[in-house]
Amino acid sequence: MMLAALLLVTQVAVQDPRLERLDPDTRVAVAAVVDSAHGVGLPVEPIIQRALEGVTKGASGARIVAAVRRLAVDLGTARTALGTSAAEAELEAAVAALRAGATPDVLANLRDVRRPPLTIALAVLADLVASGVPADSAAAAVLALAPKARDADLVEFRRAVERDITLGAPPGAATSVRLNAGAFDAPGTSSTQGNPNTPRRRSRP
C-alpha cells in the first residue's frame, strides 16, 4: 500500500517531460523535491518553473536544486501561515512576501482580516518592499488596508507610493503619508478624489 502510494507520487515528477531539460543528476534531485512537495499537498508547478528558470538561465545543477528546495520549504511555511485552503497563486505570492521580509504572523494576520483570495494583497506587500519600502512598513500598511480595501485599491496604493518614490520621497515616508491620506480604505468610493498622484481609471467621453 505504502509502496503503491509512493509509486503514484513519484510519477508526478517522472511523467513531467519538461524536467528532461535538466541534466540527469539534477533531474533526479529536483524530481525528489517535486514528489516530496506533492506528497504533502503543496503545489508543484512553482517548483518545476523554478527549476526550468534555472536551466534556461544556465545555472549549475547544485544551484537549481538549492533553489527548488528553498522554494518548497517556503511554500510550506506559506501554507502553514495561510492554511490548507490557500490557493496556489496565494501561496506563490505569500512566498514572495515572506522573502521580502514579511513574517508568517503577518501572513496569518492578513488571512484573518481579509477575504480570500489574498494574492494581490500579498503581491502588493512584496512589491512595496521591492520598491524600497521597509518590510515592516509595507506589512503594516497592507494589514491596515486589508480589511476594507479592494484589490484595485491596494494596487492603486502601491502605484501611488511608487510614484511618490519616483518623485524623490523616501519610501517609508511615502508609504505612511499615502496610508494616512486615507484615500484607499473606503470600498465603493472613488479612491482618486483629491489625490493628485493616484493612477487613472477614468471614464471619459
Binding site: 534555472g54 533553489a67 483570495p117 503581491a123
Partner: peptide, 13 residues
C-alpha cells in the same frame, strides 16, 4: 537565485 535579473507580474484580483 540564478544571478540574472527578473521581474514579476501579478494577474487577477
Amino acid at each position: 537565485e540564478f544571478g540574472t535579473p527578473s521581474s514579476v507580474v501579478t494577474v487577477g484580483g
